[in-house]
Amino acid sequence: MEKIKELDLPSDHISEFGDLVKQMHDVDVNMCYQCRKCTSGCPVAEYMDYSPTQIIHAVRLGLKDMVLSSNTYWLCLACGTCTTRCPQETGLLEVMDALATIAESKGIRSNAPEIAKFYETGLSNMRFFGKLYDLGIAGMYKLKTGKLTQDMGMGIKMMRKGKLELLPTFQNQGEMRRIFKKVQEVEKKARGATDK
């Protein structure tokens, strides 16, 4: 595992990267004093290449490439244990969301491409149907990742048991599509305002 570089920083330092995260999700990574409570409670820390504590420090130091190429924020279950126990109320949940959003917008997929593909598949399904059509998501995800046989037996049994809708139904899909479009417009406008 690569060591995080020691840098000589003034006490009020916040990197440009840290600033971006703050702008996006109102979370100040400078609040973290590296007590590691977040990592101790994280159920998936052992699967991450950098622990939540390391990631927040790296964001603070502005080590953008290291952070974005890690699998940490993709694996985050959003279970909230870190944020609940943080003595500084830093808000790692929001940091993880901000990192996933930045990676998604830049098309960064390294380290956990299947999870990124799952998000995309799920969201386009949601946009199209107005609600989640599970069988459609599973099928599309399998096609996109090539994992055709994974969970196949389970899926067939779920269908037999009536746990999956065989044919999709729509739910207020026109409104859903309007919302997706409008969100993009409003986000673009907001980005333009902060750039000026």
Binding site: A100, T101, S105, Y119, G122, F180, V183, E187
Partner: peptide, 9 residues
């Protein structure tokens, strides 16, 4: 899903 790609959404 949505919170991973867009806070506003």
């Amino acid at each position: 899903l949505a919170h991973n790609v867009s806070r506003l959404l």
